[in-house]
Design a protein around this nucleic acid. Structure first.
Lengths: 115, 115
DNA sequence: CACTTTGATCGTATATTCACGATATGCGAT
DNA sequence: ATCGCATATCGTGAATATACGATCAAAGTG
C-alpha cells in the first residue's frame, strides 16, 4: 500500500493488525464455533456459516495469518482449532490498551463546553 | 457491498464493526492521544501523526461513526474527545467475547493429534 | 469587508477486502 | 489407477479503505 501504517509504533501496528482479524463477523463466528466444539473441521463451518466454502477457507487463512487459529491437515479433512494462548495474548494487549486509554484522565474537566 | 456481513447475529456484527474502528494504527494512536491530553484535542493530532490533515480528519470520522469519539465544533477549531463510556462498553463486549471463547473448552482433549 | 486560520469535504488514485466459481490437490476407498 | 470427498488456491469482480491535494465553510482578526 501507500501504507503509512508502518509509520506507527509497533505496539499499535500489531494491535491494529490483530483487531483487523476480528473485524469481520464471519471470523468472530468462526472463533466462537471453534471455541464451542473445541476441535472442528472446516466442513462444519461451511455448513454453519452462510458463506461459500472458498470464502470460509479464506477467512480461516486470515485467522491463521493473525495467529489466532491453528490448523492441521489431517487426511482428507483438515482440522482447525483456536490458539488459546494467542487469543489470550490479544485479550491482554487489548486490555492494556483500554486500561491505558480509560485510566489516563478522569473526564473532560478542563473544558466543560467542549464535550 | 455484497456484504454477507449482515447475515450474522447482531452481537457479532456490531462487535466486528467496532473492532474495525480499532484496526488501523492511526486510529489507535488518535485514541491514545485523546486519552493522554484528556482535554479534547483538536488539530494538533495532525502535528502528532505522520499523516495529512485530510487523512486525520477521515480517521476521526471513522472513530466518530463507531461512536468511540465525540466531536464538537468550537469556533474555527473543532474539538474531539473520547467517549469513555462507549470505549468502556466496547471493552466489556470484547471481554465477554474473549471470556466466552477462552472458557468453553479446556484444550484439544478429544483429539490430541489435532493441535 | 478582506484575510487568515482551522477543519470538513470532494475528487481521485491506489490498495485491500470480500465473495465466489472454477480448478487443483491430497487422500481414502473402490 | 481411478473415483469421490474435503479443502485449498486461483482468478476475478465489486465494494471499501487509505491517502492526499484541492477546495469549501465558519469564525475570529485587522
Amino acid at each position: 500500500m501507500l501504507t503509512k501504517a508502518d509509520l506507527f509504533p509497533d505496539t499499535l501496528a500489531s494491535l491494529a493488525e490483530q483487531a483487523k482479524a476480528l473485524s469481520h463477523p464471519a471470523r468472530l463466528a468462526i472463533i466462537e464455533h471453534l471455541a464451542a466444539r473445541d476441535t472442528c473441521l472446516c466442513g462444519d463451518l461451511v455448513d454453519t456459516l452462510p458463506l461459500a466454502q472458498a470464502t470460509v477457507s479464506q477467512h480461516l487463512k486470515v485467522l491463521k495469518a493473525a495467529g489466532l487459529v491453528k490448523g492441521e491437515v489431517d487426511g482428507p479433512r483438515s482440522c482447525y482449532c483456536l490458539d488459546r494462548d494467542a487469543l489470550a495474548g490479544l485479550h491482554e494487549a487489548l486490555q492494556a490498551f483500554f486500561h491505558g486509554a480509560l485510566a489516563e484522565a478522569p473526564a473532560c474537566i478542563p473544558d466543560p463546553d467542549c464535550c
